[in-house]
């Protein structure tokens, strides 16, 4: 019965003519395990948290420059549901606009401006982040490429001490051992400066190993493991491991 329902809803959607005209979107179901959700330093009691994520997104790209560029708009809705601390369940609403530009067969660039609003049951925790991002890609061939990213962000919050400005860089190596499989390794660094008296500069370093596997034309599975290392300028620090798996339906 469920399969019949899925077939009746999704198959017509996937064959809509609009999908040929630059519309893309999908659903993603994820499960995350964070080994140190409470950010405990070494020796302190760490809280392991499991988070189920439900994400839906819808976007549209408009080709420009004879097909070498595009203007992209996108909206996302992400529901995060926590096992150990359900009072921190939250919904994230995002919209963004950006561009893609290919300088040739090998080099391309993306730019993106987005705002992401986060909403909790307790509105004192609410906040929004504005971010400007640039991505650079060097495609050595169809199965191997490098990617670098820059981000500048400004976070607003209900409480003054939660507001910040931030910036960061990232880089990754991407390899497709098969046409439907992607393996990658990425590094990221970012810093946020808060308007607080102590520990106002907080720096995060991350290393991620990831896998995306297409299962047919419209279904994919993904998995990743991230080592996170956070430091502040008052010498406080904590580390964490974040494991992430998911399955998704996409049309594009």
């Amino acid at each position: 019965m469920k399969h019949q329902l899925l077939d009746s809803v999704f198959i017509p959607m996937l064959s809509l003519p609009v999908a040929q005209a630059g519309v893309f979107g999908g659903f993603d179901l994820g499960y995350v395990r964070d080994s140190n959700f409470n950010g405990a330093p070494d020796g302190a009691l760490q809280l392991e948290e499991n988070i189920t994520t439900y994400t839906a997104y819808l976007g549209h790209y408009t080709p420009l420059a004879g097909g070498s560029s595009a203007f992209i708009i996108k909206g996302d809705l992400q529901l995060n549901r926590l096992d150990e601390t359900p009072s921190l369940d939250n919904n994230i609403y995002s919209v963004s606009a950006g561009t893609f530009h290919a300088f040739g067969a090998r080099h391309s660039m993306t730019s993106n401006l987005g705002v992401r609003a986060k909403r909790f049951d307790d509105s004192r925790r609410d906040g929004a982040v504005y971010a400007l991002q640039f991505g650079f890609k060097q495609k050595m061939n169809d199965r191997f490429w490098f990617r670098e990213g820059l981000i500048g962000e400004y976070g607003t919050a209900e409480v003054k001490s939660g507001e910040y400005t931030g910036y960061g860089v990232s880089a990754s190596i991407n390899w497709k051992p098969a046409s439907s499989t992607l393996l990658n390794f990425g590094l990221a660094w970012n810093r946020r400066v808060y308007d607080v008296l102590a520990a106002d500069e907080r720096t995060s370093r991350q290393a991620t190993l990831g896998l995306v596997q297409e299962l047919g034309e419209h279904v994919y599975a993904r998995a990743s493991a991230t080592r996170v290392s956070n430091r502040a300028n008052d010498d406080s620090k904590y580390d964490s491991n974040v494991y992430n798996i998911g399955i998704g339906l996409s049309y594009y």
């Binding site: 990221a188 946020r192 290393a207």
Partner: peptide
Amino acid sequence: AARSGWQQDFGGTSGTANGM
């Protein structure tokens, strides 16, 4: 989730899930 090393946003209020 997988490509570039940035952590996803899970929107918590402590630790890695929400940042420092």
